[in-house]
């Protein structure tokens, strides 16, 4: 059974590049994307398998992410100082996965602020994000039994323009002096404007983004920075739910597969044998 499965997988992997270049112009199925389909299937299988193992109770090791471990401590500091926590879920639309990751982390942070009765402020740039963030914060307050503490102006729509939004948030930081600033999501040119102002205001700052070009700014100005995949892992990491942690382990497995492919590709290209191998990844 296992031999048949590996034979089928090998056949697909060998034939896929050939199929990819035989794309008839009026084809219904995009055969030039077969490689991507294979990757999607392998990736989904890995995540589902690890999720299943997690459900069966297998122990899963996750390395410590200091930025996430510091979230509760940073909210605790705000509580002790009697100052608010500022959470910015990025400045992109809700159809961006980084924003969804930011909103997911907001749910966790809102639960902690609700438990400690710490004021929370969530400025947003897009109305769709406003609606989603409001729902998440309200749900978090309800889940910890603090429905009465929930204020619908915790989440506030600020401005649709990037720098108008930044000016407002910077003004808030300098006036209210929040003890903790958390930036999680997609950030662009305003990343350093926000982080430096927060630094000048004396706040503890935790940032997370998947935009590599903004990471140096956050690293320079924030106390903790979640880089790339750590942002997406945050909600699973903070939840401690085996089901969600299983997804992270599946992701690690695919990463290992990619590392193996890169090493193999380097060796093959070095010996001028890599053309066929590289063509497998064109549609991916």
């Amino acid at each position: 059974m296992r031999k048949t499965a590996s034979l089928i997988v090998s056949l697909i992997l060998v034939l896929a590049p050939g199929v990819a270049y035989c794309q008839p112009p009026d084809s219904i199925f995009r055969t030039d994307r077969v490689n991507a389909l294979i990757l999607v299937l392998v990736f989904s299988t890995a995540i589902l398998l690890y999720t299943r193992w997690a459900r069966q109770g297998r122990p899963l090791f996750l390395r410590k992410i200091p930025g996430l471990a510091a979230v509760e401590e940073a909210v605790g500091r705000a509580t002790e100082m009697g100052r608010p926590v500022l959470f910015v879920p990025g400045i992109d639309e809700l159809d961006q996965i980084e924003t969804i990751a930011g909103v997911s982390i907001l749910g966790r942070v809102a639960k902690i602020t609700a438990q400690y009765d710490t004021p929370l402020s969530v400025p947003v740039r897009y109305p769709l994000v406003y609606a989603a963030a409001q729902e998440v914060v309200e749900q978090s307050y309800i889940e910890v039994g603090k429905r009465d503490s929930y204020d619908k102006d915790i989440v506030r729509y600020v401005a649709g323009e990037q720098f108008a939004f930044t000016a407002n948030v910077n003004g808030y930081m300098m006036r209210e002096r929040p003890a903790t600033n958390i930036y999680m999501g997609a950030f662009f040119a305003e990343s350093l404007l926000l982080a430096e102002t927060g630094n000048a205001a004396g706040s503890i700052q935790i940032a997370g983004t998947a935009k590599p070009e903004q990471l140096p700014f956050f690293i320079a100005a924030c106390d903790y920075t979640l880089m790339g995949e750590e942002l997406y892992a945050a909600s699973a990491y903070l939840s401690h739910e085996p089901l969600m942690l299983g997804g992270l382990k599946g992701q690690d497995f695919i990463k290992l597969l990619i590392v193996v492919c890169i090493i193999l590709g380097v060796v093959l290209v070095t010996f001028n044998l890599g053309d066929t191998f590289l063509s497998w990844f064109k549609a991916v």
């Binding site: 980084e98 998947a210 997406y232 892992a233 992270l248 992701q251």
Partner: peptide, 9 residues
């Protein structure tokens, strides 16, 4: 890493 994280999420 970020692309895999996004796909996984």
């Amino acid at each position: 890493g970020a692309a895999l994280g996004a796909a996984s999420m």
